[in-house]
Design a protein around this nucleic acid. Structure first.
Lengths: 207, 207
DNA sequence: CTATGTGAATTTATTCACAGCA
DNA sequence: TGCTGTGAATAAATTCACATAG
């Protein structure tokens, strides 16, 4: 742990390492080497070791890494060990899929509430979560929700972001296909499937 | 167009530019400057100009860019102008969301068929697409499907990828949370929401 | 006078090669 | 001997500053 600046790319890869370690753990492994993990997830062993080195010494020379310990360490680095409450806004097709997404629990998140503007949806329950009126977003602060998930139509996305920020969320996962402006203190990550889809043909061989 | 090596990052950003141009076009604009587009999508103007410069000269000095023309140019670069047939494998929660995702048409894709292994699902129709038995994937070649979309459980993902490759697909969009091995000639992009979700807390301010 | 297009400078990230420790 | 951890070398991407064209 001798570095002062951690590359963004290294942080981006940590969850990928975590996913690989989960797989190894499920398959009954107790320890691994950087090489074994690397082959499993499609990167190089020195990339993994370098990335870890930004945060500390997690392995044993000549031996490798203890998987349970490593998972714990990465969870700590990513602050996934403290539990975070999240709120979904927009229960359409995509929002519904998000509601039933099993990945939240795996990474220590709790999907606490869901909001929608459609009166027909308000009051209904999906996956044990009752959909509330969007105007109640302001109550999130009381409920200690720190993460907002936006899955509303594009034209409503910015106002939703503003409402979530006012309600005190510290991070936003944005599924609406647009760039959103938020204060610097709020971290926002936008996911738009189309952005990945649209560059597939570029890489397609002519055949 | 004086460069021989295009940065991967530039290719990754082209769809983002395209999305911004669509927005401007919908809002009635006919032309734009790199600055105006940059502010809309949250990058810098010189980043946009540099990225375009890898592919050609699309603007007019002192004036800016014609939006329709620029959209056409980027579509051509990304090979989105020729139309591509795609097939979905795995019609669970996520797969269903993919089936009703409007973004495909926007970028010139046609979601031609869907497959599932569950006998209860085979024969049913979602969004005008009838779900077929997974064992019929091998017929994709005849139907000129070049893109495969994987949304099956993790343990079935690699065999699905193998089947798709055998059926001649040239690119794969993988929603299963794992790394997949495919021949070099096949381009694969993996999307795992959890990978983005899991790094949100890292960037969250303490307060 | 304005906004593009691009070499050059700078920053950031990856890869290498090996020292260090079990 | 085996595998980690890391400075140094290399490669890639971003930013700058300005020449250039309408």
């Amino acid at each position: 742990m001798r570095y002062y600046r951690v590359p963004n790319e290294a942080v981006r890869r940590l969850p990928v390492y975590l996913r690989g370690l989960f797989t190894l753990s499920e398959d009954g492994h107790e320890s691994t080497s950087s090489k074994k993990l690397a082959d499993l997830i499609g990167v190089t062993s020195w990339q993994i070791r370098k990335d870890f080195s930004y945060f500390g010494d997690f392995g044993t020379r000549g031996v490798g890494y203890n998987i349970k310990k490593l998972i714990k360490e990465i969870n700590k680095i990513l602050k996934l060990d403290t539990g975070h409450k999240a709120a979904l806004v927009g229960v359409g097709n995509l929002g519904s899929a998000v509601l039933s997404y099993p990945g939240f629990k795996m990474y220590g998140f709790e999907l606490a509430t869901a909001f929608d503007a459609d009166p027909d949806k308000i009051g209904k329950t999906i996956n044990n979560i009752t959909i509330e009126d969007t105007c109640k977003i302001k109550e999130l602060k009381k409920r200690k929700v720190v993460i907002g998930i936006i899955a509303v139509p594009r034209h409503a996305a910015q106002e939703t972001a503003d409402a979530l920020v006012s309600a005190g969320v510290k991070a936003i996962l944005n599924f609406s296909p647009c760039y959103l402006t938020v204060p610097k203190k709020v971290k926002i990550i936008t996911i738009d499937i189309a952005m990945d889809l649209a560059r597939l043909p570029y890489y397609m061989r002519a055949s």
